[in-house]
Design a binder for these strands. Structure first.
Length: 154
DNA sequence: GCCAACGTTGGC
DNA sequence: GCCAACGTTGGC
């Protein structure tokens, strides 16, 4: 899951403990949250538009998907007047903090590793803009090792 | 259904 | 600030 650290960083998640991942307004990204994520799934927390960009830590899916309330809030910048409360268009999950990496796994490092054992990892590919995207299990483990992380994959 | 115009993401 | 890579919108 990508977030701009100026808006919401891994430190913000650590401080708050938990966060509703609202504002996703891309159908594919929504589908991953609504249809593919399950409570307990681990998440790579990626800092986009950062210097440098990269994976900053790990979070965990804390809830089933539910309709994104910001879509119904006219005062929200994520307001979508076309989203019908009876058939919500936008969904979110809440995520909880697991750990902040001792060192960021930079996009440069991901791209370098993508030439070998991270081959095919989506986030390392050019033009890959989806803010929520799937990570293969062995890729996830490899990123954790690059971060010298303690988190175990279940 | 096609596609041009436009807007956004996000790396650099 | 630039621009590649999309996704969305709307005219036809």
């Amino acid at each position: 899951m990508k977030s701009e650290p100026d808006v919401f960083s891994i430190d913000d998640l650590e401080r708050k403990g938990r966060e509703a991942w609202d504002g996703v307004r891309n159908f594919q990204a929504r589908n991953f949250m609504r249809d593919e994520m399950a409570v307990g799934d681990l998440v790579l927390f990626y800092h986009s538009n950062a210097t440098p960009p990269g994976v900053a830590g790990v979070a965990r899916v804390a809830t089933e998907a539910y309709p994104d309330p910001s879509a119904f809030d006219p005062d929200s910048k994520y307001y979508d007047p076309d989203s019908d409360p009876d058939a919500p268009r936008w969904w979110l999950v809440e995520v909880e903090f697991v750990e902040k990496f001792a060192e960021l796994v930079s996009l440069d490092a991901l791209k370098a590793a993508a030439k070998t054992d991270l081959a095919g990892m989506l986030v390392a590919r050019r033009g890959q803009r989806l803010s929520v995207q799937p990570v293969e299990k062995d890729h996830f483990g490899r990123v954790l090792r690059m971060a010298k992380a303690k988190t175990r994959i279940r």
